[in-house]
Design a binder for these strands. Structure first.
Length: 939
DNA sequence: GGAGTCACG
DNA sequence: GACGTACGTGACTCCG
């Protein structure tokens, strides 16, 4: 069978160990049903292998393939340097038993499974890649590990499996600033904290790349180190020369490993169907077993009879999706039969098709229902005939029940408290039905169930959930309505096509619900779902439908004023620049500023463009003395940009959002959009209306109350700092809040030993930045940049802060540790925020750590205001008042003048007591109130 | 469609 | 001792 490996052959090398960790962290925990053995990582690993074997890669298809593993943690590198990879955390408890299983899996797929004592997987990969290259073949290394990048070139390339992106010499250069042949030199200098490669202290990747570009390689550099002008670099290199040499030996892969097999033995072979099916079946991977069985054309083995334990999920029969089985309901007889079935079942999955994503404008085109997996119907009510006639095809297509008749028949059912309505993003459908006078209740929402269980792991759109949990890819909407300019509305879709698509959505939703229902309980997030997600739907519906009155004339006048000012500024900009260019183009601006005018300090980012953000331009404006032309230009552009932003995003775009019928602006809140539990506002975003700048704040004058009514704003004072004080248990902070002190001034006083009555605004400002920094997972670099002070000074501040408030440091350490062990962090109310990147290596881990520190604080604050919002309608029911907007720590109400005095204390009490009784906070929450005819005045 | 920029908490 | 850095969002404009 085997032939020699040579020209025309293509070897795929899979970095197996990396895959296991990725699969483990990327996927929700999964255990084998029969005995509870953790198998999540094995399942993910098998899926990856199967995809690798079956996906069509055209000319990149493998002829030879192998999976390479690390044998153990000790390798020859530990003899060179005992600390190498010494600080690797132990793998999690439930991952360890899965390591041997992945080997078994690889063999079951009939793929060569390689590992060698004393060597890392990377060395074996290096050796095989060299052999293949020398034999004239091609190699694809499936990994995104930067340690492998030194191998790229000469027929060897890498493939990042997550991004599906090829990594060739250009990408390596982009990453390291040098070609593949110099990667080890750069790594030797910069070191690697994750692997404990020491490198030269004080030299990071950027400096390392510069040095290697100049000197060629590590050895030359070390010999000529005395020529380096920068004192720090020079000294570090001279002092640490030996350490750098060791580092190079650590990062240099060994491509001469003695292997006792030839490349030809890695030839790609079809898996042995029986062996593979046996393994998958033993692992109890139902869906993958079925997929593999389909593909190999063998019968799936009978599922072993499972002993039903108390908490095991009721078996969901795996039933293929069949679009031809869906029914079009075109007469009342059929509809009534469906209604009877729904009453019989007690629940129904439900979805609507409409003409718009904007619920305030959308018209119902059809409704789909599903009670049993695989059996669903679609009721067309608003489909139009083809667009052939002169009037744009506006005639109704034949054989459709009239909308009002369908609504009349469904209304009792949709409002029946004994019938559960299940949807995916039900707020959308519920709003549309509410406009037709139907209040859908009670409800379950699969999107929110997923959010409660898996926030932070993946998004919660139906296509993604279906793919992940049902292994099924629903018909993409684009195949029906197209995209871009030629996109049509759903009413133009032929009914036959619509039935397949729409009924499938209800079918998918029902299956997801059946799957999620028991999962929710096992993930211990039922309370979160029941108290923080689901009850928010009707509350947000009412807020969104109420909308807020926005005065078009005010916006329009401001827009004109902005346009005039911008034109003036633009002319000035061109004059200072000495040539015309597009002020709105950062690329052109950067070139004018740093290339043409030669302003010093221009820095190009990864895309090769100069950065021209506000902070950079602000720095340029300080060059008044040395470069007046650049300073002037930067100042003008900053002004221009502020106006451009205000005009395009606010004064212009906001007018487009004023609803024709209501004369008001209706935002849409996304409940599951932000991982921390915050809401997100879209179309338009009313959570980022300007307030910080004088000029911008005037936009809020356009947000008004109608005659006889008032806008009332209530916002939590320092809620995140208060929550931090409670969670981290900081007595000094708590006391300050109890005493009603200015918290930033108090911090400053503690830190700098300045009495409160001698506090300067500048010292207070610095303390405030530190307080916020703590909430964000502070770092010396970040604080230094924010305050524009030297890094060492910033670090000094942080050290002193931790000294004064030791609990903060403990909180941060404990939170990160918890995230690393469990894969998630929690809010005080039990919301889980998953942190899949927390054990990643590289800079991603830094991000993940800071996010993990921030999430319980931001998330708890988000939970608090959610609780207040859920209780608010009941509390203010007797008043002529409506809750209109939420801006993270603020609620905005519209109230009849005569009820203002009643509303404020009631709403305040609800907000201040929102954590009770679930959580007893050791810090009081305080709410401040404002009122006025406009939002500007109320704030 | 991604990157850059900037508005908010 | 240092990786590269503030946390969380959405909308608009340019440009390939």
């Amino acid at each position: 069978m085997t032939s020699t490996f040579g020209k025309g052959c293509h070897l795929h090398l899979i970095d197996g160990s990396a895959y296991i960790f990725r699969a483990y962290h990327a996927l929700p925990p999964l255990t084998r049903k029969s005995d509870g053995l953790p198998v999540g990582a094995v399942a993910g690993f098998c899926n990856i292998l199967w995809n690798e074997l079956t996906k069509d890669k055209g000319s990149d298809a493998a002829t030879h393939i192998a999976v390479v593993f690390d044998h153990s943690s000790k390798t020859f590198r530990n003899e060179i340097y005992p600390l190498y990879k010494a600080q690797r955390p132990e793998p999690p408890e439930d991952l360890r038993p899965q390591f041997p299983l992945t080997r078994t899996a690889t063999k079951a797929f009939n793929i060569a499974c390689l590992e060698l004592e004393n060597f890392e997987a990377d060395d074996i990969i290096a050796t095989l890649a060299r052999q293949a290259r020398e034999a004239g073949g091609r190699v694809t290394i499936i990994s995104s590990d930067k340690d492998l990048m030194q191998l790229v070139g000469g027929g060897v390339e890498m493939l990042d499996p997550m991004k599906n992106r090829k990594i060739g010499p250009d990408e390596v250069f982009e990453k390291f600033g040098v070609g593949p042949d110099k990667v080890v030199d750069v790594q030797a200098l910069s070191g690697d904290s994750v692997d404990n490669v020491p490198g030269a202290p004080g030299i990071g990747p950027k400096t390392a790349a510069l040095l290697i570009q100049e000197f060629g390689d590590v050895e030359t550099l070390l010999e000529r180190a005395h020529e380096i002008p920068q004192q720090k670099r020079r000294e570090s290199l001279i002092e640490n020369a030996e350490q750098v040499r060791i580092s190079k030996r650590l990062v240099q892969l060994d491509d001469q490993v003695a292997l006792d097999f030839g490349l030809e033995t890695l030839e790609l072979q079809a898996p042995d169907a029986t062996k593979l099916m046996d393994f998958l079946n033993e692992m109890e991977f139902r869906t993958l077993t079925r997929r593999v069985a389909d593909k190999l054309g063998v019968a799936p083995p009978e599922a072993p009879a499972l002993t039903e334990t108390a908490e095991a999920a009721p078996e969901t029969p795996v039933l293929p999706f069949d679009h031809t089985a869906y029914q079009a309901v075109r007469d009342m007889g059929a509809l009534n039969q469906w209604i009877a079935e729904i009453y019989e079942a007690g629940y129904v999955a439900f979805d609507s098709e409409t003409t718009s994503l904007n619920e305030m404008l959308a018209e119902i085109v059809g409704i789909s229902l599903c009670v049993t997996p695989g059996k669903a119907c679609y009721i067309p009510v608003g489909h139009k005939t083809g667009g052939d006639d002169l009037f744009g095809g506006s005639a109704l297509a034949p054989d459709q029940l009239p909308l009002d008749q369908v609504l009349a028949a469904l209304k009792p059912l949709l409002e029946d408290p004994s019938i559960l309505k299940i949807g995916q993003n039900l707020k959308y459908d519920a709003k549309i039905f509410a406009r037709q006078g139907v209040r859908i209740a009670p409800i379950d929402d699969t999107m929110l169930m997923s959010y409660a269980m898996h926030g932070g792991i993946h998004n919660h759109g139906m296509d993604e959930l279906s793919d992940r949990y049902l292994n099924h890819q629903p018909i993409p909407i684009k195949t029906l309505i197209g995209s871009g300019k030629t996109q049509v509305t759903f009413d133009k879709v032929a009914i036959d096509e619509a039935v397949k698509y729409a009924a499938e959505d209800a079918d998918v939703t029902l299956r997801l619900w059946q799957k999620f229902k028991p999962m929710l309980h096992r993930a211990k997030v039922t309370t979160v779902y029941e108290t923080l997600e689901r009850p928010l739907i009707p509350v947000l519906m009412d807020m969104e439908m109420a909308g807020i009155q926005v005065d078009r004339d005010t916006l329009s006048r401001m827009s004109n004023a902005f346009a005039q000012k911008m034109a003036g500024l633009e002319a000035e900009v061109q004059e200072v620049a000495g040539q015309p260019f597009n002020v709105g183009s950062p690329k052109q601006l950067g070139e004018i500023l740093f290339d043409v005018l030669k302003v010093p300090g221009g820095e190009k980012g990864k895309t090769g463009a100069y950065g021209t953000g506000a902070d950079i331009l602000e720095d340029v404006t300080t060059l008044e003395d040395t470069h007046p032309q650049g300073a002037k230009l930067a100042a003008l552009v900053l002004d221009w940009r502020q106006l451009a932003k205000l005009k395009s995003t606010y004064t212009d775009a906001l007018q487009e959002h004023i609803n024709r019928d209501t004369g008001r602006v209706h935002t849409s809140y996304s409940i599951s959009g932000a991982v921390t539990g915050r809401l997100a506002s879209t179309d338009p975003n009313l959570q980022n209306i300007p307030v910080r700048s004088e000029e911008g704040r005037r936009i809020r004058e356009a947000f008004v109350a109608p005659k006889g009514r008032v806008l009332v704003s209530l916002d939590y004072s320092q809620i995140e700092l208060r929550i931090l004080a409670h969670i981290a248990d900081i007595p000094a902070l708590k006391q300050a809040f109890r005493d009603g002190h200015d918290i930033h001034a108090m911090t400053a006083s503690e830190m700098f030993n300045v009495p409160l009555d001698q506090m300067t605004s500048d010292v207070r400002r610095q303390a405030k930045a530190i307080n916020f920094g703590v909430i964000y997972g502070i770092s010396g670099f970040g604080l230094a940049r924010n305050l524009r002070i030297p890094r060492a000074e910033a670090q000094g501040f942080i050290d002193r802060y931790f000294e004064r408030f030791p609990g903060i440091k403990d909180y941060m350490t404990a939170t990160v540790k918890g995230a690393q062990e469990r894969g998630y962090v929690e809010t005080l109310f039990g919301r889980k925020i998953h942190t899949p990147d927390i054990n990643a290596k590289g800079p991603g881990q830094g991000f993940a750590k800071r996010a993990a520190i921030n999430a319980p604080i931001q998330g708890t604050a988000a939970d608090v205001i959610r609780r207040a919002m859920v209780r608010m309608p009941g509390a203010i029911a007797g008043l002529d008042a409506k809750m209109l907007l939420q801006v993270h720590d603020e609620l905005l109400f519209e109230v009849a003048e005569e009820d203002v005095e009643k509303l404020i204390p009631i709403a305040k009490e609800v907000m201040e007591g929102a954590s009770d009784p679930a959580v007893k906070l050791s810090v009081k929450l305080e709410v401040e109130a404002g009122r006025g005819q406009t939002w500007a005045a109320a704030h």
